[in-house]
Computed example of a mutant assay.
Amino acid sequence: MGTDYTAQVTSRGGRDGFVRSSDGQLDLKVGTPKEGEKEGTNPEQLFAAAYSTCFHSALKSVAASKKISTENSEVTAKVTLHKDGDSYHLSVQMEVTVPGLDQDQTLKLAEAAHQVCPYSKATRNNIEVELQARTAVTNK
């Protein structure tokens, strides 16, 4: 297996610290997630950003192979942190919108992307991922 890229990010202070990538492109204050507070980003937001981006790339790749346009498509990841007794676990709702496709077509495309997305593969059978298809809202 070949290697295309390795990301390196260092955390200092955990949920109440900082994260910084080796190339300096990512340099953020991190805070404990609390609704309405602005103490910096949190691991759930970072995971949602990474997962939605990777999933969107997989969606575009699958769509291109089927000659389906993904212009103005969107993928929103909602990552929820659940308390489970003394531990925690995550769940994800992945909302996919592809203008020009109905909900059924969008869901089928999302399901195909879910099979090839590296983040989906990494989390499969570890966290619940719910795929949701949305229809695009057109401005008249």
Score class of each variant (00 low, 15 high):
64 A>W: 00
139 N>R: 12
39 E>M: 04
54 C>I: 05
140 K>D: 05
119 Y>R: 09
13 G>L: 07
128 E>M: 03
14 G>C: 07
82 H>A: 08
34 K>M: 05
2 G>I: 00
111 E>A: 06
90 L>K: 03
129 V>D: 06
23 D>P: 11
63 A>M: 06
29 K>H: 14
47 F>G: 07
37 E>M: 11
122 A>N: 07
94 M>F: 00
102 D>I: 01
21 S>C: 11
8 Q>L: 13
12 R>Q: 14
99 P>R: 13
135 T>V: 06
50 A>M: 06
58 A>M: 01
89 H>W: 02
2 G>Y: 00
73 S>E: 09
78 K>H: 15
52 S>D: 14
77 A>S: 15
65 S>E: 05
88 Y>D: 00
43 P>E: 02
138 T>M: 12
109 L>K: 14
22 S>Q: 15
107 L>M: 11
40 G>N: 09
68 I>D: 00
48 A>S: 09
122 A>E: 01
16 D>V: 10
100 G>T: 06
21 S>A: 12
55 F>S: 12
60 K>C: 15
100 G>D: 04
25 Q>P: 02
54 C>A: 10
10 T>Q: 12
58 A>L: 02
26 L>A: 13
30 V>K: 05
58 A>P: 03
21 S>E: 08
61 S>W: 04
74 E>Y: 05
85 G>Q: 06
78 K>E: 15
9 V>H: 14
126 N>A: 11
110 A>E: 09
120 S>W: 00
40 G>Q: 03
89 H>I: 01
94 M>C: 06
48 A>W: 02
57 S>I: 07
106 T>R: 03
34 K>C: 10
130 E>S: 12
79 V>M: 01
